[in-house]
């Protein structure tokens, strides 16, 4: 969910882009990271842990912890809290169906 009004900050947004997440189309802004665009669309689970298949979301949001790794345009382990979203990107949950 996006903040509509803020007493101090005037949020300047970039260009609107469309991307897909697990096959469904969504919108975001081209100056925000992938994970942020997903959060704005209400998506909080980004990956599943390999061994116990536990859901994972953002933890640090500044590229330090690896909690947000996803498959982007077919490439696994992309750090989505810092990587910018681009027009037409194909984003997928990572580790879905991992063997317990």
């Amino acid at each position: 969910m996006r903040i509509k009004e803020h007493p101090i900050i005037d949020f300047q947004k970039g260009k609107t882009v469309t991307f897909t997440f697990d096959g469904v189309q969504y919108e975001g802004f081209d100056d925000e990271p992938i994970a942020v665009a997903l959060y704005a669309n209400g998506i909080k689970t980004l990956s599943y842990s390999l061994k116990y298949h536990r859901p994972r979301g953002i933890f640090c949001c500044i590229g330090n912890c690896s909690s947000c790794l996803m498959k982007v345009n077919g490439i696994p382990n992309v750090r989505t809290c810092t990587q910018r979203i681009e027009q037409g990107m194909v984003i997928e949950t990572q580790g879905k169906g991992a063997i317990k």
Binding site: M1, H6, Y39, K44, L46, G57, I58, C60, C61, C81
Partner: peptide, 19 residues
């Protein structure tokens, strides 16, 4: 669990990206 964040992550989401 998703939904548990560092305070800095919350600051980043909300103050930098307006989410």
């Amino acid at each position: 669990l998703p939904g548990i964040y560092g305070a800095g992550a919350v600051q980043t989401l909300m103050n930098m990206y307006g989410v």
